[in-house]
Structures are given as C-alpha cells and as structure tokens.
Design a protein around this nucleic acid. Sequence first.
DNA 1: AAATACTAACCCCGGTCCTC
DNA 2: GAGGACCGGGGTTAGTATTT
Length: 343
Amino acid sequence: MPKNDSTGAFQTHANYLHAFSLISSGNVRDLSKSLKSTKDRIWGSGFLPDGSCPKANSHQAISSLQNAWGTELLLNVGLRMIRSDELIRLSNNWSVVQAYYVLYHATQALTAAKGQSRPDTHTGTQNQFYTFLAERGGGLEPWTLAFGASGPENVPDAVEVDGDCHSWVSCNENSCWSLAYKVLRTTREETIRLRERDARIGKRKQQKAMWEKEEKLRSEGGKRPRKPPRFPLPKLTLLEKQTINQKLRPYTLMDYLYRLRVRTNYEDSAMFTDGPQNDSVSAEVRQDLQKITACSLLIFELHVRRLLGKTVFDKAVAEWVTANAPFKPSIGVAGRMELHKSI
DNA sequence: AAATACTAACCCCGGTCCTC
DNA sequence: GAGGACCGGGGTTAGTATTT
C-alpha cells in the first residue's frame, strides 16, 4: 500500500515508462543492444523513405537535430554524473522534460527534412509525430502504438490487450502492452475532459446569447423584460460528447511524455522525489527514459539521414560530436554514428 | 493513478400562482 | 386567460471523496 499520493503516482508512471521501454527492445540492459535491435526493426519495417527529398530544408533539419542531440546530452550527463539516489530522484524531474524535448526537436527535424514547414507549437509537433508513425500503420512499436476514438490502434497480431489492467500491475512482456495502451487512453481522456469542460462553457455562452437576443426582440416588441435566469453550466448530450471524442486524434507515446512533462514541471514535482519506495527504482526510471529517448532519436535520425542524404547528415553529426560529445565510451548520437553508417 | 462510491447540482416536467 | 415565475419530485450527471 502506498504511503502517500506520490508513491502511487510514481509507481504508476515508473510502470508506464517501463512498459514503453520493454516494448521498444525487451528487457535489455545494454543500450547498444537496444539500439541495434531498434535499427534492425526500422530496417525491416519499411518505414524509411526510399530516397532523398529534393524539397528538404537541410539547414532547419540539422538545426533541430542539434537541439535534440544537445537535450539528449543533458539527459546523458545526468546519467553519467549523478549517482546518489537523492539526486537521481530530483534529476528525474528534468529527465522527463528532456526526454520530451528530444522527441519534440526530432519530430521537427523530420518535418523540415520532408520539406514541410516546421510546426511551432507542441500540439502541432505532436500531431506530426502521430502522422509520421502511427497513422502510417503498425510495425514499429511502441512508436506506432496509438489510442483513438475507436480504441487501441496498431495492436500487433500476437498481442492481447487488457484495457482494464491496473496501473500497478507488474510490468512484464505480456502486461507491458496493456499498460502502454492504458496510458495512451488515459492521457487522451485527460484532453477529452478538458474539451468537454470547454464545450460546456461554450454551450452556456450560447444559451445566454440566445436568451439575450430573444429578450431584445421582446423589448422591441413592447413586452416587459423578463428576469434574467441563471445560466448553470449545461451538460453535454451523448452526441456532443461523441463528437468531441471523434474529433480528437489518436494519442501516442509523445503525448504521454508531454503529459508527464507538464505534470512534473507545473503540477506535481513531488512525484519523483517523494514517490520512490526504495533506492533503486529511480535509477531504473532514468534508464528507461534514456533508452526510450535514444531509440526514438535513432528512428528519426535514420529518417532524416535518408531524406537529406548521407553526406550532409554524416558531416553534421561528425561536426557536432567533435565539438560537443564529452564522454568515452561514446553515448548519445556519438554512440549511434556507427549504426547510421551501417545502413 | 484510476476505479468506485457518494453527494450535490442539475434537468425535466407538470402543476400552480401571479400579473398584465 | 396568456405568458411568465416558482415549486417540488424523479431521475441523471458532474464533482468530490474514498478505495484499490
């Protein structure tokens, strides 16, 4: 039983993150193995574009990637330098933020590499993430997993999803799928709740305006004024709710990371500091974040490399690594250089 | 965190009273 | 007597508290 709210929340989110980590490359501790298997899956998935893109905005793509690499570096510096549990707990607060921003910049890099204009909002970037991956179909889990108006999308054939599994159920090779879909669903439901709230306020506004319009007509017709009614927040009809649900796009891993980022940034900074019940779980969370981030970035890097061409891309990586990569053995994009070249 | 239980607020609707 | 205000019971739902 949890001691306070933070322990429950921590347990839940640690579980969710681990689920994505497991789906990405199984219960592998060695990051280089995870990256290798991710590379093989991308290669076999047919997700990579056939050739370079003539419309590509190379300058913008590289610049966005540099942001992503730099942000990932911050995450990795923490991993390398911060050893005491107390500090790991604290650093996880910013690790989730960093993980999100890596995906944010990577997604923008890919948009630029495709020659599209770069989205300048969180929502726009998250939409692109969905378009690049889940919308095209399954095959590259967890990045292609999504939860939409009609339920889980791109569920692999052999996978059984239990939509009602508890968020604390122990995360293993089976339950990880249910957990992942669950968090995509609940993340999406948070947005739906906000939209329903807005819709109710809008509905009330409309009712009020309608009444005032009628009242104006009445007074013009010489009728005596009615007492203004109070306008309680109206409820939504089933149809109105369904419409809201239909209109909201399916949610993905990136939407979840955004939720986590907002939560730890603005709403509940105690989850990662007060939540862990022993001295090892925080390090595991951090490791999962690093793995999710690195493998995600690899996917985007390989995409962008195809679209910009090897020469431009490899040169940009080499320059950045020379100027910025501090550690041996290499981590971050420095460690992924060889993987890029093997394709 | 999410499910569940519980409570307060709300809608609906007919009936009745009030006022022009 | 027509139009509007007010009332109350029944049923639903939103919001809150409790439980898992």
